[in-house]
Design a protein around this nucleic acid. Structure first.
Length: 307
DNA sequence: GACTCGTGGAG
DNA sequence: TCTCCAAGAGT
């Protein structure tokens, strides 16, 4: 992509950022992790919680977590079981386990300071391409593209004229990089603006184009909002899946004050014993459950053997 | 690249 | 009711 630093003589066309940055400043939701007093650790916790979980369900837990564990070292000192119980029903509890591991790594190897560069962030458990850049940009003001599902959808529509973004690809980063203003602070705001637009206006189902600040330059809109050609995504079944069973098993352990006998877990899923056994085994492999010497099961670190 | 991994709210 | 899907990561 060409470098677009040329300042044309008269009416240089306003860039996407010229429109979206002011729009964001006027319309951004007042989310707690966006406030200036939020620490990088607070930003990191929010980003992990927001992975595949809606904003509305994260706000409450996020406040509680930052009050309880205001620094990585505070969380590092807690057993994983405490973190998993506090995670509650946010879903995908492996995220909680990885955040706990990341907290321990930050406390032990980084002087309790959340790293600022993308590469180091990506080396931490649970921090991938998106989260590393989100922390670098939103917590540390780094000028790096931050690409999540919202951003990919906005770019697919406004820039490429397609109804939906395809599967995430390495190319997405370069796609967004060219949209960022040169100023670091503005670049971070632009990333937040792209995400906000995708989350509140340019949404997956029923996009609100009449409220869109860039409707006049949206390629998809100009093409008459053509339908997506994708084969859609495979139906996300739920009832009877391993995920449901794992959820039930973990729910029992979260609700118990301490280790439980095998029978307590067997009672959580009676329809298919083989499936229950398989899921319990996968939870043990994932480190979300531990088996004690006496045969009982517990959340990790609960018996005092760790942390 | 295709799968797996929780949970609950909206249309 | 049922389908979709929401600030992804890891394998």
């Amino acid at each position: 992509m060409a470098i677009t630093t040329t300042v044309t003589t008269t009416a240089a066309a306003a860039t996407l950022a010229d429109v979206l940055v002011p729009w964001f400043r006027a319309h951004a939701r007042d989310l707690p992790w966006r406030r200036p007093e939020t620490t990088p650790w607070g930003v990191l916790v929010s980003e992990i919680m927001l992975q595949q979980t809606p904003v509305a369900r994260v706000e409450g837990p996020w406040r509680e977590w930052l009050e309880r564990w205001p620094r990585p070292s505070a969380m590092a000192a807690a057993p994983a079981a405490d973190v998993l119980r506090a995670w509650g029903r946010l879903g995908y509890p492996r995220r909680a386990l990885r955040l706990h591991a990341a907290a321990r790594a930050i406390a032990a190897d980084h002087d309790d300071v959340v790293p600022t560069d993308v590469e180091t962030l990506e080396s931490l458990p649970g921090i991938g391409t998106y989260t590393a850049r989100a922390v670098a940009a939103f917590a540390h003001g780094r000028r790096v593209p931050v690409v999540d599902t919202n951003v990919r959808r906005v770019v697919a529509r406004a820039v490429h004229g397609r109804a939906e973004a395809g599967a995430a690809a390495a190319r997405d980063l370069a796609d967004v990089e060219v949209l960022l203003p040169s100023d670091r602070a503005d670049a971070a705001t632009m990333s937040a603006a792209l995400m906000e637009l995708g989350a509140t206006v340019c949404i997956a189902r029923g996009p609100r184009c009449t409220d869109c600040p860039v409707a006049d330059r949206c390629s998809w809109l100009q093409r008459g909002r053509p339908a997506g050609d994708g084969p859609a995504r495979k139906a996300q079944t739920w009832a009877g899946t391993d995920r449901q069973v794992r959820g039930r098993l973990l729910e029992v352990l979260r609700g118990a004050p301490g280790p439980v006998p095998a029978a307590a877990l067997e009672a959580a899923w009676l329809t298919d014993h083989a499936q229950r056994a398989r899921c319990l085994d996968s939870l043990l492999v994932d480190g979300l459950v531990e088996q004690l010497a006496d045969g009982r099961f517990a959340l990790p670190g609960e018996a005092g053997d760790v942390g």
